[in-house]
Design a binder for these strands. Sequence first.
DNA 1: CGTTATCCATACACTTTTGAATGTAAAAAT
DNA 2: ATTTTTACATTCAAAAGTGTATGGATAACG
Lengths: 211, 211
Amino acid sequence: MARKTKAEAAATRETLLDAAEDMFIAHGVARTSLDQIARHAGMTRGAVYWHFKNKADLFQAMLQRVRLPFEDLVKELDDTTLDQKPLEAVRLACINGFAHLEQPRYRRVHSILLHHCETFGDIDPLAMQNEMSSETCGALLKYFNMAGKLGQLRPCLAPDVAAQIMQAMLAGLFHDWLRNHESYSIRREGAQLLDTQLALMQRTPPPLTYR
Amino acid sequence: MARKTKAEAAATRETLLDAAEDMFIAHGVARTSLDQIARHAGMTRGAVYWHFKNKADLFQAMLQRVRLPFEDLVKELDDTTLDQKPLEAVRLACINGFAHLEQPRYRRVHSILLHHCETFGDIDPLAMQNEMSSETCGALLKYFNMAGKLGQLRPCLAPDVAAQIMQAMLAGLFHDWLRNHESYSIRREGAQLLDTQLALMQRTPPPLTYR
DNA sequence: CGTTATCCATACACTTTTGAATGTAAAAAT
DNA sequence: ATTTTTACATTCAAAAGTGTATGGATAACG
């Protein structure tokens, strides 16, 4: 086989990861062999074993293309006036997250992580989910604590419970949407649920139209 | 091998299913072979292939031991005074569901279904999750509609949105707890989140202690 | 009491997948 | 210009898993 240039080699690596996503979504991680991935990318297993140590290594490389921690979603907003409006910061960060998730690559990889793989090799998707979950909940707690101190939460609502509720709702919505993303848009549905929930939580809910 | 009595044969069948749960939890469905299941049950693959057609058949048999639709959780309450208190019906049904889930077998099988298996054979866990989800959401919608008609919901809260929010929160809580059930009790945490959420949703929230 | 169907172990053939070894033509380094 | 890596394809050996066929002891049945 003729040697490729550095750029070409990097491109084939990406091609392999794309093919892996395809196959993982279609048949699950465990049920797709490295040969199937290579064939779907128009190559052979030689290419796979050149770029990746094994299946787990390829899987990890695939995940590293889509990291998005909650705090980064907040930072992307870059709005200093949000310091006095923590609930609005949460809202915008979530909406920003929804927008990210509608990008095919993000959606697909997260779908694989949550719904199309189980523990294998040295990688544990459940541990990753726990990390994501606790990190999100911690960030939410920070903002709800601020909201509590600023008197923007309803008095009957403890900040930590608010954070847990919001975390659970987002996770549930996330899971549900990933299971059938073609049936609705998470930007629209998510925004509606999010706005309603935040309206229920804050001290003086603005008049939301019942429709 | 000597033939067993009918009762003994039925017992070995249960033993095999128990062993399958163990191995599925420990190593995932795809990564456990029928031989590993048989050995863990103190038998050989002959027993497995006698009682089940193949791995998918065994998997389905395992699932059939734990069905619990939301409507059944309501029926188990058997309280006719609940007709005028739909939100209380939802609350009790959820709490009843939490109690069910703390039974080891229920918890383990649902954990397998949600976190330790991917599509294989002719069974599709995602389709099952969609069924569970839509069924739960439909039941919730029924009760929130009643609550709406009875004027027990806050005016800014549309019943269908309320059902979706509640469904998402329950699903998220469910997923999170199944990932680390040893770190907290879903009966306690679930009840707290549930009560708070329902208090936020109903028209005249009772004074909840901030603590 | 004799026959048969059951319950499970054992053995065998087959497929799938993996990891490593080898080959090779061209890009890069010297 | 020569040498050395690189970027794969091809081939090979080994392991693991599956489904089936067969055997054997005995419970169940008439």
